[in-house]
Each structure stands twice: as C-alpha cells, then as structure tokens.
Design a protein around this nucleic acid. Sequence first.
DNA 1: ATAAATGCAAAGCTTTTGCGGAAGT
DNA 2: ACTTCCGCAAAAGCTTTGCATTTAT
Lengths: 128, 128
Amino acid sequence: MERSTRQRSAIRQVLLDADRPLLATEVMDAAKLTVPSLGLATVYRTLKALVAQEDLQVVELPGENPRFEFAHSHHHHFSCQHCGRVYDIHACPGNIALLAPPEFVVESHELTLYGTCADCQEHPAAGN
Amino acid sequence: MERSTRQRSAIRQVLLDADRPLLATEVMDAAKLTVPSLGLATVYRTLKALVAQEDLQVVELPGENPRFEFAHSHHHHFSCQHCGRVYDIHACPGNIALLAPPEFVVESHELTLYGTCADCQEHPAAGN
DNA sequence: ATAAATGCAAAGCTTTTGCGGAAGT
DNA sequence: ACTTCCGCAAAAGCTTTGCATTTAT
C-alpha cells in the first residue's frame, strides 16, 4: 500500500460512505461506478491490505461471505433476517469477561443480534 | 435421512462424544476410525441434513471453516487464540435485546469470546 | 425388489496467486 | 526509469452435485 491509485481511492471511498459492513462484491459494484475497469482481484487485494494495517474490520456472519467496514469504536452488529442487511449497533452489554470460566482470559468479544430491522417492520413485503 | 447407516451412526457418535463444535474434517477423521471407507461428501451431506432437522447447530468464526455441534440449551463460545480450540460457554449476559434501537425486533443473538483458554494459560508453549 | 445412501470425481463459489502490461512516484 | 499495482485468467480451498454402485428396508 505504498502508492495512491484511482482503484484504492474508489474502494476506500465506498467503504467510508457506507454506514454498514459491505461484501466484497458490494464494494466491487459500488467502486466500479467510479473505476469501471476495476477487477475483483484488486478489490480483494486492497481489502486484505486494509485489514492487515487495521484500517478495516472483517464482519463474518454464519453462512455468509465476509463483510468489511472501517474500524471504529467498539460496536456490534444486527443482521436483519428479512432484507439481509447488517447494521452497526453502537452499544455493548459490558462485563462480558465474567461469562467465561475464571481460568480463561478474555481479550475481546463479538456479538451479533438477529431479527427484523425497522424498515422491514414497516414494509413487510419489501427487501429480501 | 430415512435410513440408518453405519456412516450416519459414526458421524452422530463423533459429534455426541465431542464437547465442543467440530470442523467437517475433524468429523471426517474421527468417524473414519469407525468406518474407514467414509467419504467427505457423505460427511457434508449428513451434517447438512442434521442441521436442516435442527439436530445440529453451525458455529462460524471469522476466517475459519464452519464447525458443528449438537444443539443444546442456549450457550455461547470461547475461541482460544493460541490453540484454536472452540469451547462452549454455558452463560449468557441476558437483556441483549435492549442494545438494538427500539424499532428493531431482536429474535436471537450470538456471542463469541476470544482470549486464552486455561490449558494455554498453563502451558504457554503448547498447542497451536 | 425398491429406493435411499454412499463414494468417487467433477463442478461450483469465493478468494488467492502468477504474470505481462499499465501507471504512480 | 523504477517498481508497485492492475486486470486477466488460472489455481486453490471448501462445499456441493451427478452418477453408478452399494445397501437398508
């Protein structure tokens, strides 16, 4: 990640504009609007590099492909079972470490909520 | 899943004997001790069927292949960053639904702790 | 005897890698 | 100019699927 290229700027910008974690293909599609020639390999290479330097965070949900978002203050995720979107939850139960047996050292944790988002609550037929 | 076969019994038994979620390949290796001719496709087909009928639960951790365990009372997981083992945690913070915005309906949740297990605490050089 | 289940090998998908050409510094 | 980076296409790794054979009922 030594040089600044149109591809990298586009990929960064897509992720900065999003308020939720994106799939590699979502990043690809959005960034292609800016750089039509963009290849999927470049997207993956860039995402990997951004994760390596801890700019990006990976969000993995069961049965789904990994999503990516810019690392920001500690937060969790809400996955809507109707529209498939994943939202950030800016809250944390805290005291999580107490759940593990006393001999276990807890360094971090991850929490995912599943349910129906506000949108799908209002428009039951939409999304998906 | 209409018939009882040696392969299915072996696979079931392996998962019943384990006290932690297992990778498909771990199931394969262990079940092969009982049914040497066992093929990986059969393992996947059986796991899929057991998950479909909700006997098994899938445990997915970021960057790792899915693990499988018999569904039992609500619990969470602890992933040891040293030895890679995944443990069951029989505790839950509760009140999780309050973390989501009020318009969101929370139906379930999943929590994973990361850190060092008791074993790796004692034998820092082991595992991995 | 009949149909489901197995094992093998081929196909599918997402992600990674190799390489010649393009482009940033 | 010198390297890094890109895009393409091939490869890799896990999971699924097709098909002929085996096997439970």
